[in-house]
């Protein structure tokens, strides 16, 4: 890898890093506005025009608050748990293709930081480490409610990972590759996976909601039973990190849904454009899709009531896993038919 390429990749990584944090910050604003609209309120409107500076005000406050560690908590684990949650959520943007190549400064710049051939497996592997942040945080607090919440959350996350893994297999079967770039390229134009895999899409979407610990599956933050869940004892920037990590995860989950099922940066009529114009439009299209998926997540959160814990586990194990498995078998057999292997 030569120096120019290394510099290019480093700049792209820093842009993505700033973008993830910026989008996560404005998701908190967006969520509060969406909640307000749905409940016929106004929402944050004091800081700046339309309350647009609210995330900055919140961030500034979190930075200068007193950082509190309970006397009987495990100090070191208590400190690093939010760090683990944050690190893990920032890692996955590295394999996502954000658009077609751009030609600038006499170089062809790829808008994907790295195209490793295990792309989707890398994302699933890294996101599953996120359980450690929650589990360590909940245990180290030495608070019964935090512990229960952490155990519920990790149990839920590992359960839904199975159905999620099974539903991704159908996409891999159709594209024949684990690389996100190839999966997206295979959905050229309007040939999106959602038209072929509606069931897989629904299973993957439900699992993403559960993996992000969002309502109606927010067992980890069941206020009525568990105070606020695994971050009950946290304050200041550490609590901010847990919440931030959740929003970065939501952003990444929306991006992965867009890439796997909604065609990524492809859009109908993309063959009429070319060069840098195509790249710019493609990036805008991808981000439009991401915002719409994020809005759907929020819409669901403010519409549906919370599940009971046994209902949640029953849905994950007894319904989604069999559905995803049958969907996989049917997909494989249908593809075999269409390719004429049975003749």
């Amino acid at each position: 890898m030569d120096t120019a390429l290394l510099v290019e990749k480093s700049i792209l990584i820093l842009i993505l890093f700033a973008l993830s944090l910026g989008i996560a910050a404005y998701q908190t604003y967006f969520e509060r506005k969406v909640a307000a609209w749905m409940q016929d309120r106004i929402g944050p409107n004091n800081a700046g025009p339309f309350g647009l500076l609210q995330p900055l005000a919140d961030g500034g406050k979190l930075f200068f608050k007193e950082d509190f560690v309970p006397a009987n908590a495990d100090k070191f684990l208590f400190m690093i748990a939010p760090g683990i949650a944050m690190t893990v959520s920032l890692l996955t943007s590295v394999v996502i293709p954000w658009g077609p190549d751009i030609v600038a400064f006499g170089r062809t710049i790829s808008l994907q930081v790295t195209d490793i051939n295990i792309g989707i497996l890398f994302i699933m592997g890294i996101t599953s480490i996120g359980v450690y942040g929650i589990m360590i945080g909940g245990w180290a607090s030495n608070n019964k409610y935090s512990l229960y919440s952490a155990i519920r959350a990790s149990s839920q996350m590992i359960s839904y990972e199975l159905a999620m893994g099974l539903s991704v297999i159908t996409v891999v079967l159709m594209g024949g590759s684990l690389s996100l770039r190839e999966i997206v390229e295979a959905q050229h134009g309007f040939n999106w996976n959602i038209w072929y895999q509606p069931v897989g899409f629904i299973v993957f979407f439900v699992c993403s909601v559960a993996e992000c610990n969002r309502a109606p599956f927010d067992m980890a933050e069941c206020e009525s039973e568990l105070i606020t869940g695994y971050h009950t004892e946290y304050g200041a920037m550490k609590m901010g990190f847990f919440l931030f990590a959740e929003y970065v995860n939501l952003f990444i989950a929306s991006t992965v849904i867009s890439c796997l099922y909604l065609g990524g940066y492809n859009f109908p009529g993309m063959d009429y454009f070319e060069g840098n114009l195509l790249s710019v439009i493609s990036i805008l299209v991808l981000f439009t899709k991401i915002v719409l998926v994020i809005f759907t997540f929020m819409w669901i959160r403010w519409t549906l009531p919370r599940f009971r814990y046994d209902q949640l586990m029953g849905l994950g194990w007894k319904k989604l896993i069999p559905i995803a498995l049958i969907n996989m078998v049917i997909t494989a057999v249908v593809i075999a038919f269409t390719r004429g292997w049975f003749n």
């Binding site: 990749k9 790295t114 890398f122």
Partner: peptide, 14 residues
């Protein structure tokens, strides 16, 4: 290599 750079940035920041 970019994965390692990204990991270094994320771990350092956190």
């Amino acid at each position: 290599i970019p994965v390692i750079i990204q990991a270094a940035v994320a771990v350092g920041f956190s």
